[in-house]
Design a protein around this nucleic acid. Structure first.
Lengths: 197, 197, 197, 197
DNA sequence: TATGAATGAGCCTTCATTCAT
DNA sequence: CATGAATGAAGGCTCATTCAT
């Protein structure tokens, strides 16, 4: 984010546009660089490859997301394993609200990660992140985990995609926050009713 | 589906593999056609372009999905506008169960539509379908529609993506049906609790 | 050699010129193909890579050389191991004369193999061929092999390079044959005097 | 050799490695300079081109070889033209032994000259050197020169290449000297038997 | 219906070199 | 003396598509 030369900044800026519009694979490095006012040779003075450019654009936010999610995991660990289920909804509420804020502050990079990364090593970033974290959650709640494992995986994945979609929906931050409140209510109510019976 | 020459059938078969594995854009027409045992010339006797081939693979199922969804809409119209909200959960339950069955019977095409269509006109098939149907639903329930419009859009979209993911999860039909039951319970419970307050 | 389309023949012809003049690495495929009157796309309809083109030009002669050399080895095997040394000069005389004839009939390919193959899998064709055959020769003559092993390796290698140089010297076939007679006499005389003391 | 700045020395050192491993053409100046811990800009403060760097590495040894060879020529001139042939073997023996010593003391540069110079003006250094010197020898021995001119050229060339190969064979200095003794015996014996009839 | 030769634009990448600072 | 940003040409290769046969 800092320490970038004006050249890099300009290239990042243009690359962001192209990657967002066309996706990694279709976006033409030639065009990006030319549009930024440079030559391919100049580009390769800064990056080893097209993919390295993509990575430069998303790596910080990708790590930020991972961190934000792991904070949520830490939220559960404050409780002992018997209480965890009872605080599940509450912990999620808090954690997801933070994550939402984070994503909303990095909308472009989030979209890059979620919708434009085909052909890069971030291809299934969210999915892989969720798979990893779901394991942790299941371990933490033990046998009392109230959901069919496949259902859990699908739901978590879905929720995060929803979060991504919300962020990407193009609406104002306020509207998004409002919408997410309703959504969280629905999930919370659903979880509660599921746990009861 | 019918009326295909053996040549077309073979090409469809191989194209399905490639599109599923690599996505529309990365899949090489050359390789598809060669793998099917034909030449590019032969291919262009049947299709005007690579995209037309993709379309041939998915068009029926795409229409099937549209139809299935519109049946759900029709389900609401049996009730007058005041009763609709009360039967919402029930109608969804039924309709989505049918849709799930449909998708499960056309799993490859579903995956093609949802995950492999970048670069084709089906690129945002599901999203556009949902947008359209959401409008209808809102019209039908009128002012009493209990959700923030953006929330509604996101939720519906999310639910259908979840349905898609379930279908694509690679598990057995039974396991998927089980998982979806839990998920439907969650959504239903959530909707109920949301409508209550 | 046969079974080539006119396009391939033309490309081979031009490629031969370029590879001979510039070596494999420096020769530009673009230029070769353009010079032949085609486009790169056309080229890649026939060959998978620049190197495959090179190989197409030399593979037959490379195999021919291997065969010719192995015939020489077979020449030794007619004698039992004690007589071999006595017939060494004679066998060489005959075999090398045949090899010379063979190389002279395939001058361009020989030059390609010996002087223009850097960057291809034929990079050290002669050297590797000699190393292999030297082992055989040593096995066959056993302990009586009259030369220091390194000397043997260097000499054989040198002799074959000499043969190559002769072929490539550009003189007429007759002159080359004459020159090689003197050279063979020298080697033969040298071997005899070496074996005596 | 002397008068080099530390920068130049470091560049020479690294360039030697790269040129030896990859040859002049394939070696990347960028990498050489970067590996040496400098920038291309710095490099071009010392050298006008990649080739000038190569030349700097080999020029002294190239001249040394030329000198060593011309000493051999001088060896013949001590005898009047009628005696020359009789002392040919002896003169060669001495001169080549000196040359071998010289090459062995400058093994890297020798290898550079003989095997890694494609693309530079030293491309055919040895060949051209030999051609020049062969003329002198022929003039000196006049009509009595016992070999077909082409044979002579090939043999001399071959011998020097052999010398080069020996030096490059990677064996210890001692083993190389041993091997060359055998080889010299063979050549000497061969020459004698050739002159006799 | 099918072939297969050919196109032409495009891809990402590497190079030796220049030059203002 | 040294930097490092930038050039511009060239590299090998793949693509969807066309078309005469």
């Amino acid at each position: 984010m800092t320490g970038l030369t004006p050249t890099q900044k300009k290239i990042h800026e243009v690359a962001m546009e192209y990657f967002l519009r066309d996706g990694f694979r279709k976006a033409s490095l030639r065009q990006i660089v030319a549009d930024a006012g440079f030559t391919l040779g100049a580009f390769y003075g800064y990056y080893k490859s097209k993919e390295e450019l993509f990575e430069a654009l998303v790596v910080d936010v990708a790590n930020g997301i991972i961190e934000e999610v792991s904070k949520m995991g830490a939220g559960f660990q404050k409780y002992d394993s018997k209480e965890r289920l009872d605080h599940m909804v509450e912990v999620f509420d808090l954690g997801l609200s933070d994550l939402l804020d984070y994503l909303l502050s990095h909308i472009d990079e989030t979209r890059l990660l979620l919708k434009c990364s085909q052909g890069t090593k971030y291809e299934n970033f969210l999915e892989r992140l969720m798979d990893r974290n779901l394991e942790l959650m299941k371990d933490m709640t033990g046998d009392e985990f109230p959901l069919n494992p496949l259902a859990a995986k699908l739901l978590v994945n879905s929720y995060f995609n929803l979060l991504g979609d919300a962020v990407l929906s193009g609406e104002s931050r306020e509207e998004i926050a409002d919408a997410m409140k309703d959504i969280e209510k629905l999930y919370a109510g659903g979880m509660v009713s599921l746990m009861k019976g």
